[in-house]
Computed example of a mutant assay.
Amino acid sequence: MHEARREPVSILMDCDTGIDDALALVYLCSQPHVELVAVTSTPGNVDAEQVARNNLALLDLCGRSDVPVAVGAQAPLGIPLVTTPETHGPQGIGYAELPVSRRGIERRDAVELWVEAARARPGELTALLTAPLTNFALALRAEPRLPELLRGVVIMGGAYYYQGNTTPTAEWNTHVDPEAAAEVFRAFAGQPEERLPIVCALETTERIEMRPEHVAALARAAGCAKPELVDPDHAPGLRSQASNPLVRHLSDMLRFYFEFHRDYDQGYVAHVHDYFAASVAAGTANFSTRTATVHVETSAPRLLGTTIADYRGLWGEAPNARIVWSNQPDEAFKELVAAVGGLAAGLDF
């Protein structure tokens, strides 16, 4: 069991923002013990340039204009990019309309930034990867020693003996760039167990199921003047009137996400996968893992992006991952509401 410990941690985040990526990023901004070293932008939910715009705007909104944002790859390694406007909206942030940042992106691309940071601070940085693994795979090509240079790696991706959310067997991030995912797992084969990536896959991230009452609780924690009601009986697209701008934007994102899940017969909920991965990287989650050897399917058309875990060593290959096996959803939402509500209440808008 990995127990929550608020010890100082320095995080390099790579994301494809994305509603749940946005919530994860805001959560990290709420944690005083987290040094957010940089945020890099991978194409996925939207194209890489839009991801970067979302990241800049969110960081500015959270009072973190000091955090650099970089762009890396423009497309997956070997297949065309497929985005998800039906899931996250045309800009990746649901119904939210974020203020445009006055900042620009880093002159360095994501790969340069990752490699330079890891070499400059060996053993200090934790990688949080909530997007397709394109940028990280390219960084591993540029610096094969990254598994030794990084303090740790947390990946949101995959589905192990669990129904996929993109195809019957594949999870979204891995399906977008299966070649990149396969390269990343190969790079960690044979590393000591404590250096293996912690993988937050669908079987545990779909348990982190946000509901309208969590949005209401977040608004209360932020000191909003009126209750924040996100109701399944509301007309689609109704905009938040919350007095706190951060709560208002998050509510507008999450309403879109609730509506998407309802439209796909999953209920008026939102699976906030990336928030859970962020809490793992930040050390604020209680969870357990199982060591495994992961294979990513890259050739069979119907199984593209499917992830398989050998927990028993039947392949006779070295482990390359620690897959999260259990987590605590109720604890996760108490943490999220208190942390992000506190951040929102303390911001000077």
Score class of each variant (00 low, 15 high):
268 Y>Q: 10
109 D>V: 13
14 D>Y: 11
274 D>Y: 04
155 I>W: 09
198 I>F: 00
125 L>D: 06
303 L>N: 03
8 P>L: 11
330 D>Y: 07
65 S>A: 14
344 A>I: 02
299 S>P: 03
319 P>A: 10
25 L>Q: 01
42 T>A: 08
313 G>C: 08
120 A>N: 07
125 L>Y: 10
16 D>M: 13
5 R>L: 14
42 T>R: 04
267 G>K: 11
244 N>I: 05
224 C>F: 08
116 E>Y: 02
225 A>V: 07
288 S>F: 02
6 R>W: 08
178 P>M: 05
142 A>G: 08
195 R>W: 05
100 V>N: 06
36 L>Y: 12
92 G>Q: 02
12 L>D: 05
62 C>R: 01
222 A>W: 02
19 I>K: 10
116 E>R: 12
263 D>G: 12
288 S>I: 02
121 R>D: 03
40 T>P: 06
28 L>T: 07
60 D>W: 01
197 P>G: 14
328 Q>M: 12
309 A>E: 05
73 A>V: 13
73 A>L: 07
92 G>M: 12
12 L>A: 02
169 T>C: 10
59 L>V: 01
222 A>S: 12
284 T>A: 10
116 E>F: 00
170 A>K: 11
117 A>S: 09
101 S>N: 10
241 Q>I: 02
81 L>C: 09
100 V>L: 13
318 A>L: 04
162 Y>R: 12
293 T>E: 13
258 F>R: 05
149 L>A: 01
87 T>F: 05
170 A>E: 06
203 E>S: 14
155 I>V: 15
159 A>Y: 01
37 V>D: 04
319 P>E: 03
115 V>H: 00
118 A>S: 09
321 A>Q: 05
162 Y>L: 04
175 H>Y: 11
231 D>A: 12
253 M>R: 04
246 L>S: 07
158 G>E: 00
42 T>V: 12
268 Y>V: 11
312 R>L: 14
225 A>K: 15
294 V>Y: 02
4 A>V: 13
256 F>E: 03
199 V>W: 03
169 T>G: 03
333 F>I: 00
184 V>Y: 08
162 Y>H: 15
169 T>E: 10
168 P>R: 03
218 L>G: 12
129 L>N: 04
48 A>P: 01
99 P>R: 08
154 V>N: 04
302 R>C: 00
85 P>C: 13
219 A>V: 03
321 A>G: 07
115 V>M: 02
138 L>M: 13
167 T>I: 09
11 I>K: 06
38 A>R: 05
7 E>K: 04
22 A>G: 01
173 N>E: 14
